[in-house]
Simulated scan of single mutants.
Amino acid sequence: MPSSRSLAALIGIASLGIALSACQDQASGQIVARSGVRLVETVSNPSIHGCHRFSEGVTHVNNQTQSSLLLYTTPDCTVPPGGQSTYLDIGATDQAVSTAGLWRSFSFAPE
């Protein structure tokens, strides 16, 4: 019986390790995007990799995840000539400045 308990413990530890490593590919929480007072979309537990596009341009972004964001006025997470991305910290909210344009995409800031 001791060998079956050891095997069960080993399988349990391996399963926990796999589950924890899988969670690292997602930002835990939500990103809430609004246009004025109208809710545009809520993104839950998004992947921390790549570029994420909003369904339409938004004026307000609320970062309710455990990771910092970069906001872009382009749909492909690129910085236009003469422009810049905007850093949005954990738990913060940002409003697009009218001269910069609407937020159209976001990515996660490198940690």
Rank of each mutant, 00 (worst) to 15 (best):
V61C: 07
S55C: 02
L69V: 03
T78K: 14
T78R: 15
T93Q: 03
D89R: 09
T78H: 13
P81A: 15
Q84M: 07
P80W: 08
A92D: 06
I90V: 15
G83R: 08
N62F: 09
P75M: 02
I90S: 02
V58M: 08
V79A: 08
P80K: 11
T86W: 15
R53W: 01
Q84L: 06
S68L: 04
V58S: 09
D76W: 05
V79C: 08
G91N: 03
S68H: 07
G91E: 00
Q84V: 04
H52V: 00
C77L: 10
C77N: 11
C77G: 11
R53V: 06
L70E: 03
S55G: 05
Q84G: 13
T93G: 03
P80I: 14
V79D: 08
Q66M: 07
C77A: 11
H52N: 02
D94M: 12
Y72M: 04
T78A: 14
F54Y: 03
P80D: 14
V58A: 08
G83M: 11
T59Q: 10
H60T: 15
V79E: 08
S68R: 14
T93M: 00
N62E: 14
P75V: 01
Q64C: 03
T93A: 02
Y72I: 06
T93E: 03
F54S: 03
L70M: 06
I90A: 04
P80T: 13
E56Y: 00
L70A: 00
T65S: 10
V79K: 05
P81C: 05
P81K: 13
T78Q: 14
T73C: 12
A92I: 00
N62S: 14
N62M: 09
Q66P: 01
R53L: 01
D94W: 11
V61D: 09
D76P: 05
G83K: 09
V79I: 15
H60W: 03
T59M: 05
L71A: 05
N63T: 11
N63M: 07
V61K: 05
P80C: 13
T74L: 11
N62H: 11
R53N: 02
P81M: 08
H52T: 00
T86I: 15
G83E: 06
L71I: 07
H60K: 12
T86F: 15
S55R: 08
G82K: 09
H52C: 01
D89T: 06
T59L: 05
N63F: 07
Q66Y: 04
P75N: 04
C77Y: 12
L70F: 07
T59D: 07
V79Q: 06
P75T: 02
G57T: 06
N62L: 09
I90P: 00
L71K: 04
N62D: 13
L70V: 04
T74K: 10
L69W: 00
G57P: 13
V79L: 10
L71Y: 04
T93W: 02
D76K: 03
D89C: 02
D89E: 12
T74W: 08
G91S: 00
Y87F: 14
S67H: 15
D76G: 04
D89Y: 11
E56T: 02
Q64W: 06
R53A: 03
L88R: 01
T86V: 15
S55I: 09
S55N: 02
F54Q: 04
